[in-house]
């Protein structure tokens, strides 16, 4: 396991708006190598947008994001839209898992995991299949290589999605409410995979409503509301004795269930 050291990812004053709606209003966050950060907050607080800014699915309007100490914004004069971002640099280092899985329905589990390896990393079919099979084995789906997504349960699909992201050898993994679309009995199998990943030293940002997971696995918990980080700290501190009134309110509502 790598030691938790230098900054893997740092965000400074990140702002994002959709038309008039300000979703992120200046977010500063630093994530160390090997750190697991859980992001909590009510819906609409900007948690998902924060993740989508980091991997440039929704490039921020203002602020700076540094990945492995390199700015991912190319700066002025580099062109418009996607051209102004270090898209390849980011996407090759940052993996994301979505709430809705977004598996490719016309591909088998194994093909889902091998497609980008071949197209993007240029791995041979044999190499990609070997890696894919190993990863699917690791997430407990060694017997489902040739199944198509529609024949897999939600929990199984989400584990395929995790394997698909891991196949690209990411340095950071983003999890966007990955258990929110799952039936309750399927949540654990996905969280178990994520827990193992954390133990192996993967740098992870996990947007979640699973307070128990945050308490057990996170090195740090971040609470967001209204597009800013309201409070952050060790899980025990933020979850057991929050300083901010809004954090208390939110945790009160969540833990009541």
């Amino acid at each position: 396991m790598e030691s938790k050291g230098g900054a893997m990812l740092s965000l400074h004053g990140v702002c994002k708006r959709f038309d008039k709606l300000e979703v992120l209003r200046g977010v500063d966050l630093e994530i160390k190598r090997g750190e697991v950060v859980c992001v909590l907050g009510p819906s609409g607080s900007g948690k998902s947008t924060l993740l989508r800014c980091v991997n440039l699915l929704e490039p921020p309007e203002e602020g700076d994001i540094r990945l492995e100490e390199r700015s991912i914004c190319k700066g002025p004069g580099s062109g418009s839209g996607e051209q102004s971002w270090e898209l390849d640099f980011v996407r090759q280092r940052v993996g994301i898992v979505f709430q809705q899985f977004n598996l490719f329905p016309h591909k088998s589990a194994l093909q889902n995991v091998t497609l980008a390896q071949e197209k993007v990393l240029g791995r041979s079919t044999a190499e990609a299949r070997k890696k894919g099979a190993k990863l699917l084995e690791r997430v407990g789906l060694g017997d489902k290589l040739d199944e198509y997504p529609e024949r897999l349960s939600g929990g199984q699909q989400q584990r395929v999605a995790i394997a698909r992201a891991l196949a690209m050898d990411p340095h950071v993994m983003l999890f966007d409410e990955v258990t929110s679309a799952l039936d309750p009995e399927l949540v654990k199998e996905v969280l178990d995979v994520m827990r193992e990943l954390a133990e192996e030293g993967m740098t992870m940002i996990v947007v979640t409503h699973e307070i128990g997971f945050a308490r057990e696995v996170a090195d740090r918990v971040v609470f967001m509301d209204g597009g800013v980080i309201v409070e952050e700290g060790a899980p025990a501190q933020v979850l057991e004795s929050p300083r901010e009134e809004r954090t208390k309110q939110f945790l009160g509502l969540v833990l009541e269930r």
């Binding site: 996407r91 090759q92 993996g95 979505f98 977004n102 490719f104 497609l115 980008a116 999605a161 992201a165």
Partner: peptide
């Protein structure tokens, strides 16, 4: 989400 997933994989 399909396009997003594909793009996020690079």
């Amino acid at each position: 989400g399909q396009m997003e997933a594909a793009r996020s994989l690079g």
